[in-house]
């Protein structure tokens, strides 16, 4: 489990099938904005398979982290919902 304020990295996985972690956030470092609770994993649910519940988080990224020098306004932020199995602990960037 991760806590609000904790720095995390989104795992740069490339699994086939239905996933809800956008490509543009894979490998990026952000901060847990809030814990949303357990939700059925859509990677199974999409195929009507038994879907175990996974903790879901809102993770906040800076635009500078996502887009690098191409960021429109580096201090702006992007929040997205990410399941725990896509998250690993990281050090602040």
């Amino acid at each position: 489990m991760y806590e609000p304020g904790q720095t995390v990295r989104i795992r740069a996985l490339q699994p086939p099938g239905h996933v809800r972690t956008p490509h543009y956030l894979r490998g990026k470092t952000g901060v847990i904005e809030r814990v949303l609770g357990p939700y059925e994993n859509p990677e199974q649910r999409a195929y009507m398979l038994p879907a175990p519940e996974k903790p879901l988080y809102r993770v906040r990224f800076s635009m500078a982290e996502i887009w690098g020098d191409g960021a429109e306004h580096p201090e702006d932020t992007l929040d997205a919902e990410i399941y725990e199995h896509w998250i690993e602990a990281a050090h602040a960037a």
Binding site: L56, D76, T77, A80
Partner: peptide, 14 residues
């Protein structure tokens, strides 16, 4: 410029 823009991408159950 002094206003922060926060984008929210509805990626899952919210």
């Amino acid at each position: 410029d002094n206003v922060t823009c926060r984008v929210h991408d509805s990626t899952a159950d919210m």
